[in-house]
């Protein structure tokens, strides 16, 4: 796994990669089928779906029905992948995903775009800080927060054939370059991006970039921080959690999500019986989202490298 992180941004947009990968998966596997709820234009699949109406199904603005239809297709042997914005892919369809997919064992992949503050100008109504919390409660579900382009491609390919309910949260804009093109990121194991002995920063999604920047700043202060990418929030790599908790004795969890129910909760649940580390969190407090540019929202909700540095310093005092 080749790490190419230098802090620079990838010029490619997630939305273009999503659309391209969905088209490629359809070409590779005749059982693959993609459904959307009137948001095809947001990930560049609209024109392709018009030409391939048997594999690109626009369900209109009816997300609950879309989940059920996807599950019915799964029951007839298809491998459905559905897309809508994060809040509608989680809150709005939770009972349908829980029962029609999970309980009934109809295997589907759900892509929720614009997680957390990446919903920017769509504002509070479209800003899911709770989607991970909801999906984590579905027995045996797979929950993933995407960091970069190669990871998105790798995860989409894996999810197509993975049993169960799979939830992928990913933005539509661009992100920092993390891994070399072609890198495969097997679902499950956490990825150590930087070794360290004083404090471990566990991060996912857009917060991995912030964590890497924070680690650089901490290094300038003589603090040796490890950075571990927990892009698979469920099933959580509990061994990696315990290993770094023991190794560093201090853990900061950073996520673009509510501090209730997400990666921080999962880490705390894992370490509750360990008593090996002090833990703190950089995440959204118990509040709703609001409208604005992403840099403003990251500051407003405390999701920057500076917040990670401050939290780490306070833990080490």
């Amino acid at each position: 796994m080749e790490l190419i992180y230098d802090g620079s941004m990838d010029s490619r947009l997630f939305k273009d990669i999503l659309g391209k990968t969905i088209r490629e998966l359809s070409e590779q596997d005749s059982d693959f089928i993609y459904l959307d709820a009137d948001l095809m234009s947001c990930i560049g699949t609209g024109a392709w779906a018009c030409e391939n109406p048997d594999r690109g199904i626009n369900c209109g603005i009816s997300e609950s029905n879309m989940i059920g239809v996807a599950c019915g297709l799964a029951a007839t042997g298809f491998k459905p992948m559905v897309h809508t914005f994060g809040p509608f892919a989680s809150r709005r369809v939770f009972d349908q995903v829980f029962l029609s997919a999970g309980y009934a064992k109809n295997d589907i992949t759900v892509i929720g775009t614009d997680p957390g503050v990446t919903a920017t100008f769509n504002g509070g109504t479209h800003m899911p800080f709770e989607d991970v919390a909801l999906y984590r409660t579905i027995p045996t579900a797979t929950v993933i927060d995407i960091t970069d382009v190669p990871m998105l491609i790798s995860v989409l390919k894996q999810c197509k054939d993975l049993p169960g309910v799979k939830y992928i949260r990913v933005g539509r804009k661009n992100a920092a370059k993390m891994f070399a093109d072609g890198t495969e990121t097997p679902i499950g194991p956490a990825i150590t991006l930087r070794e360290g002995k004083d404090i471990a920063i566990f991060a996912c999604g857009i917060m991995v970039h912030e964590a890497m920047q924070a680690a650089n700043k901490l290094a300038e202060q003589g603090i040796d921080a490890a950075v571990v990418n927990f892009f698979t929030i469920k099933p959580l790599d509990a061994e990696a959690v315990k290993k770094y908790a023991r190794q560093c004795g201090n853990v900061v969890v950073a996520e673009n999500h509510s501090r209730i129910g997400g990666l921080y909760s999962a880490v705390c649940e894992t370490l509750a019986r360990e008593n090996t580390a002090k833990i703190d969190v950089v995440a959204v407090n118990d509040e709703y989202g609001e409208v604005g540019p992403q840099d403003y929202l990251q500051k407003r909700f405390g999701l920057t490298a500076e917040h990670i540095v401050e939290t780490a310093q306070a833990l080490l005092k």
Binding site: G68, G72, L73, A74, A75, T76, D95, L99, S100, A104
Partner: peptide, 29 residues
């Protein structure tokens, strides 16, 4: 419950959900 009873084609119980499931199955066929 389709996973428990031989011959039951789909799991239902939370009202309304079977309608979409049936649509997906009909589309799949």
């Amino acid at each position: 419950d389709r996973n428990k009873t031989p011959g039951v084609d789909m799991t239902t119980g939370s009202l309304g959900q079977g309608t979409s499931l049936a649509c997906g199955m009909a589309l799949g066929e």
